[in-house]
């Protein structure tokens, strides 16, 4: 993987530009490198799709919470403490037997950081951004999700202000599972809409 040699290879032109900017801003007292260290660590270790999975598992086990979540996503997610930058205005869309939701951002790569972390490369890529809105079923097939024709596919295009989280369907056969066990089943892609949640292999 690129990571193995990145630290030994001579710095790229881009790395040099970043270093120059950080150094200049630090010299002017406009930036504290330790603040950047802390942000990187937070997003590498604390903020990610496990947060969103807890929201989904709560909605699966608490009908009142689910209702609040669908009515006012931002407030219901805040109840679990997953608010913050790029999650200020959240809309949660529910998958049902009749509707499957898919989230994209055609203009950039807007993504709900507090609940899902930072977006994967494919979400930021030109092919996904271009095709998710013109051929969502084709995209879903590429991700291994085959839906019958009578299921309506709704595509949600995020913006810099408004971000979406998919509430996937709870898989059959999970009635006996605890909230934590359910959360463990919920994948990042299922909350973007490019995957379904699978029941645990028994």
């Amino acid at each position: 993987m690129a990571h193995d040699h990145a630290h030994n290879a001579p710095p790229s032109e881009t790395a040099m530009r970043v270093k120059a900017l950080e150094t200049l801003l630090t010299e002017k007292g406009l930036l504290d490198p330790a603040a950047i260290d802390a942000l990187v660590e937070t997003y590498e270790t604390k903020i990610g799709p496990r947060n969103g999975a807890k929201v989904v598992a709560r909605a699966w086990t608490d009908p009142d919470y689910k209702q609040r979540l669908l009515e006012d996503g931002s407030a219901a997610i805040a109840e679990l403490g997953f608010s913050g930058v790029q999650g200020e205005d959240m809309v949660v869309v529910e998958n049902t037997d009749d509707v499957h939701n898919l989230v994209t951002c055609t203009l950039c790569s807007c993504y709900p950081w507090p609940t899902l972390g930072l977006p994967p490369i494919w979400f930021k890529s030109a092919p996904y951004r271009a095709r998710s809105v013109i051929d969502p079923r084709g995209v879903l097939e590429e991700f291994g999700v085959e839906l019958s024709d009578d299921i309506e596919v709704r595509v949600w295009d995020s913006s810099a202000e408004l971000r979406y989280l998919v509430l996937p369907q709870r898989p059959a056969g999970t009635e006996g599972l605890s909230e934590d066990e359910l959360a463990a089943l919920v994948t990042r892609d299922s909350m973007i809409g490019t995957a379904l949640v699978e029941a645990p292999a028994s």
Binding site: H7, A15, Y43, T106, P120, W122, P127, A130, S132, V133
Partner: peptide, 29 residues
């Protein structure tokens, strides 16, 4: 980009790190 064609396949990476290079984390911060 919505609706543009001929952008090719969607390439996915398994177990993708949050940042692929150290400088990406600095830019993010």
């Amino acid at each position: 980009m919505g609706g543009m064609q001929c952008m090719g396949p969607i390439v996915r990476e398994e177990n993708e790190p949050q940042f692929h290079e150290e400088w990406e984390g600095r830019v993010f911060g």
